[in-house]
Each structure stands twice: as C-alpha cells, then as structure tokens.
Design a protein around this nucleic acid. Structure first.
Lengths: 112, 112
DNA sequence: TAGACTGTTCGATGACAACCGAACACTAGT
DNA sequence: ACTAGTGTTCGGTTGTCATCGAACAGTCTA
C-alpha cells in the first residue's frame, strides 16, 4: 500500500468524461477512425472489463494504441479501470446511447 | 440546343454515387464536418429541390462551399440537379437511411 | 532488487483535409 | 455581344491528426 487516498497515482490520472457532456463533433471524430471502430466492435462483443488494452488485435504500435484509447475515453465511449499493471476497458453503451441515440449502433453494427 | 445527348456538358459532369455503394468510412468523414452538417440540417427542413448551393448561410467562401457539396455528393448524402445557372439540392434521406440505418438521424437531429 | 510486462508521454514526421483567391465555364437577361 | 449571377477547378497555404521510436512510469514476480 503506497497511499491512503483513493487509488494510485496512475488511477487518479485517468480522467473520464460523461457522454452527455461530449459535443457531437467530438463523438463523430472519435467514430470516424477505423482503428477506433475496431476497438469498439471488439468491446461490444465481449463482457465488460474482460479486455485489457494490449489484448486487441490492431495494426499499430502501442504508442498509437494508447492514443486511440485516450480519444475514445475523451469522447465518452469507453470507461477504463486499472487492474494491476493492466488497464481494463468497458464500452459505455447505455450512457452513450442516451446521449447520442442510434449513433453507436449505426456505426459499429456494420462492416466497414 | 447545343447537344443531342442527355443534358448539358455541365449536367453530364455531375456524378452521383448510390448510398449503398458508399463505405462507412466515407459516410462518417462526410458527417464529421460542421459545415456539411449545417447543409444537411438545412436540407432536412426544406422541400426537395428548393435550395440552390448559393442559398445556404455558411461561413466559408464559394470555393470551399463547392468542395463541401462535392463531398456530400460522393458520400451519397445529397443529389444535385441543374436548373439554369443554379444547382438545386435534395437530401437522399430514404436511400441513405436504407444503407446506414439511424446514422443520419443520429447526426442531424441534434444541435452540435 | 532485478527483470519482465503493461501502458503513457514526448518529440518528430508525413499525410491529408479545410480553406482561400483567382481564373474559368456556363446560364440568363439586356 | 455584353454583363451579371452561379458554381467549379486550380494552385498553394495552413492546421491537425495518425503514426512511430524512444524514454519513462507503475505493477507484478522471482
């Protein structure tokens, strides 16, 4: 145990944005990237918190990968949580659907 | 009369793409621009063929405006037709909705 | 404590899209 | 024919984003 506060320094640096506070522009830009859509489709077909960032099959390096996860988080599309050295993910489907009805379905329930 | 063919040279150069043949990537990129969404919202609230390109209130020059209309056409979002010197527009709502169910509604039935 | 593993941050690069002014093409009216 | 109006095309600029390697920061286990 290293701190009496809430979570580690790493966990505290993890900032989330509520989908309701996300501008449409930000949401669309986040969805308009094929790598990010791959991540979202993958999350949509797996249980919450079952996938760490490194377990996705993506054609980019880990630096770029980390960037994409940050964009998805800032767009209110995913939630992240630390579990040991790994960072687990969850698709924020109900919250995002409430803020942008139909957008997520129209975007990921379909091949490219 | 200048030609026995179908329409004028100008009209013949107007190529349209069926929404069903548009990649999701192209559709999302077209929708991820605020100027283009303004055009689409405008079209959605007016009768078909009632608006010429120049009649839209947009914060860009006519060169940029022309570019945006070309992008919307290539994404299967609008159809254009020449009427004298003006080019009239129509939102391809049913065709686009069939190809991308819910996407257009999620994008334009909402403030930015 | 050393090493392996996971993920972020930094700095730089390349590609691409939005944007503009100017020139051009077409149409309609005078 | 001239002029005015509408829209496209061209060349160039600018800003932004995806991408990478390298360095760094935590976490876990031996």
């Amino acid at each position: 145990m290293v701190s009496a506060g809430e979570g580690s320094a790493r966990a505290r640096s993890l900032s989330h944005v509520a989908p309701a506070d996300v501008p449409l522009q930000t949401a669309l830009e986040a969805l308009a990237d094929p790598v990010r859509r791959t991540i979202l489709r993958d999350l949509a077909t797996h249980d919450d918190w079952s996938r760490a960032c490194g377990t996705f099959d993506l054609p980019v390096t880990k630096a770029t990968r980390s960037h994409h996860f940050a964009v998805l988080r800032a767009a209110g599309l995913i939630e992240q949580r630390d579990e040991g050295a790994r960072r687990l993910n969850r698709l924020r489907r109900p919250e995002f659907d409430a803020a942008f009805p139909g957008l997520l379905a129209a975007t990921i329930d379909r091949a490219d």
